[in-house]
């Protein structure tokens, strides 16, 4: 069984390292990738414990969750802030460190006093095999003894979904947004950051009413909202 111990050590080492990386990475997208790595390694450890169902569900549920997390990062955080997203908030750092210490202390007390190890459940390997495998046993348990917790969880998730829909719906008392919004087009082909200097210029620009009720920004000449190649070069040199 030496091989199994070796593999377990490898998996848990990678899981721990990537968990640490997840909280220390400066870039939230890198953090999310480290989180996925942790989940995958934990799933592999589940497989070694012959809990294949748990492993598969762990990957399906948590990779989806992390995907949404990455989406939030990409949509809500300004890309230029990404590398320094964590820094500059000393209160948060101190508070987070304190809470982390308390959690660590709780876990170590629990492990050291061995209260984490409860009485073994009624299922052993022979019992699971007789019932037809661990999926069947999990299914029967979930829909017999644990029906109430499952239904309660489903209700909470439903409430969260409805809440999100409620918060996300457009305000009815306001005018429909297209009329109020200033529509400006910045070429998507420019590299990130290249258009930043244009935004104030766009705001200050002469806004002309055109085409229905939409506000349009009209460029007086082709160079007005476009950085020239020389300016780009100058910018590159100063960097």
């Amino acid at each position: 069984m030496a091989a199994e111990v070796l593999i377990f050590n490898l998996l848990s080492a990678v899981a721990i390292v990537s968990a640490v990386a997840m909280i220390t990475m400066r870039n939230p997208v890198h953090s999310a990738i480290a989180l996925v790595l942790t989940f995958v390694n934990v799933a592999a450890i589940f497989i070694m414990l012959r809990a294949e169902f748990l492993a598969a569900v762990q990957i399906i549920v948590y990779t989806g969750a992390v995907l949404v997390l990455i989406l939030f990062v990409l949509m809500l955080v300004n890309p230029d802030d990404l590398p320094e997203f964590h820094s500059g908030k000393p209160m948060q750092n101190v508070f987070g460190f304190g809470v982390g210490l308390i959690l660590l202390a709780e876990i170590s007390v629990a492990i050291l006093t061995r209260t984490v190890v409860a009485e073994p459940g009624p299922w052993n390997e022979e019992g699971v095999a007789a019932a037809g495998g661990n999926i069947q046993v999990i299914g029967q348990l979930l829909y017999s003894g644990y029906v109430l917790p499952i239904q309660a969880t489903a209700l909470v998730l439903l409430a969260a979904t409805i809440g999100a829909l409620f918060l996300g719906r457009p305000d009815e008392d306001q005018e429909p947004s297209p009329k109020r919004r200033t529509v400006a087009t910045i070429s998507l082909a420019h590299t990130r950051g290249a258009d930043d200097d244009l935004i104030p210029a766009l705001r200050a620009a002469n806004i002309k009413r055109e085409a229905g009720d939409r506000d349009l920004i009209m460029a007086r000449d082709a160079d007005e909202f476009t950085t020239s190649a020389e300016e780009e070069e100058k910018k590159g040199q100063s960097e």
């Binding site: 995958v40 294949e52 169902f53 492993a55 569900v57 990957i59 989806g64 495998g133 999926i135």
Partner: peptide, 14 residues
């Protein structure tokens, strides 16, 4: 493996 269908979906979502 006894969760082959779930495994397939898990790899797909990765």
């Amino acid at each position: 493996i006894n969760v082959a269908v779930l495994y397939f979906l898990a790899i797909g979502s990765m």
